[in-house]
Computed example of a mutant assay.
Amino acid sequence: MAPPDRGRGYHHGNLRQVLLDAARKLIEQHGPLGFSLAEAARLAGVSPAAPYRHFRDRDALLSEVARTGFERFAAQLEIAWDNGRPTPLQAFENLGRAYLTFARKEPAAYAVMFQTVGENGKELEDIPAADAAFNILQKATAELCKNLPAGERPPLRLVSLHIWALAHGVATLLSEARGEHKKLPVSPEEVLESGLLIYLKGLGVLGEGSPGGTA
């Protein structure tokens, strides 16, 4: 008797999605480069030749995991930013939390998105959704900095890169700490929020007289 997934994959045209789901499971278990296309086929319940209907090799499958991951990532960041509501600062904090939530809930996609795209010969600039995600961060940064005097306004792209690096560092620390069963003294969200507030305060973005200030 054929495995159930095989019938669904061939008869309902969802083989591509079944293989993506299988790849994410294997990535969680073995890392982005720790499995073969044949293993993904086996987990999906299809023949070793079936994946080649959609993917020329494992790297092509990983690239699709990255592309679809960035699409979900950008969509979640956009929802979190919500055009700067209720306030730009609160929305910015929501953006940071959404970043960490995605990394926590989709560790396989996140790992491929940031660890292997270059090795697969596909830079982030070649993935439109990656650019869209960064543009959301730039849009949020511009909103936070818009009230600074023109002569004191920092380069928005550079600031956005700094903030992205901070969020990525906390997300990576979260992943490593979970894997080693370490207990952090504070939550990753608190680490990121305090880091962002210190950084924004240094830029002069935050108002005086409040821990969070006003943007």
Rank of each mutant, 00 (worst) to 15 (best):
L124D: 07
D59F: 11
Y110F: 15
N120F: 05
D21W: 11
A75S: 13
R58T: 11
G84R: 14
D82R: 15
A133K: 05
L77F: 12
F114L: 14
T68R: 14
A23H: 10
E119N: 06
D131V: 15
N120W: 08
E119I: 08
R85P: 04
R67T: 15
E78S: 15
Y52V: 03
H54P: 02
K25I: 05
F102Y: 14
A66F: 13
N83M: 14
F114V: 13
A60F: 06
G84V: 10
A44L: 04
M113W: 09
V46P: 07
A41W: 00
F114G: 06
F73Y: 14
P51Y: 02
L95H: 12
F102L: 02
L20Q: 02
A75N: 10
A50S: 14
A44N: 03
F92Y: 15
L124I: 07
E28L: 12
D126V: 00
A22L: 07
L89N: 05
N94I: 01
P32L: 04
D57A: 07
N120H: 07
R67Q: 10
A49M: 11
V46L: 05
Y52I: 04
N94W: 01
Q90S: 11
N135S: 10
A22S: 14
Y52T: 04
S47C: 00
Q90K: 14
K25C: 08
G45H: 09
E28H: 02
L77Q: 15
I27H: 03
E28A: 13
R85D: 11
S47G: 09
E93I: 15
D126S: 13
G118H: 11
A91N: 09
A98I: 11
G31H: 09
V65A: 06
F134P: 00
T116Y: 09
I27L: 03
D21Q: 13
H54V: 06
D82F: 12
I27C: 02
A50I: 10
L62R: 09
E64M: 13
D126G: 00
H30T: 01
S36H: 04
A109F: 02
R53I: 12
N120Y: 03
K105Y: 02
A60Y: 08
E39K: 09
V46S: 02
A98S: 14
F134S: 00
D57E: 05
V117M: 15
I27S: 02
A129E: 03
F73W: 13
E28N: 13
F70K: 05
T101L: 10
F102Q: 01
R97V: 11
L77D: 12
Q29M: 10
A75K: 13
R58P: 05
R56S: 13
F114M: 08
A22R: 05
P32S: 11
G45L: 07
Y110I: 01
A44W: 04
A133G: 01
P107R: 08
P88S: 07
L26A: 03
L62T: 07
N135K: 13
L43Q: 06
N94L: 00
L100M: 04
E125A: 14
V65K: 09
A130S: 14
I27Y: 04
A38S: 08
R42G: 03
S63H: 06
A108Y: 12
G96W: 11
A108T: 07
A111M: 08
L77W: 12
E125G: 00
Y99K: 02
E64P: 00
L77V: 10
Q29Y: 01
Q90R: 15
E39N: 05
A23C: 11
W81L: 12
P51L: 03
E123Q: 09
A75G: 03
Y110M: 05
Q90G: 02
D57R: 10
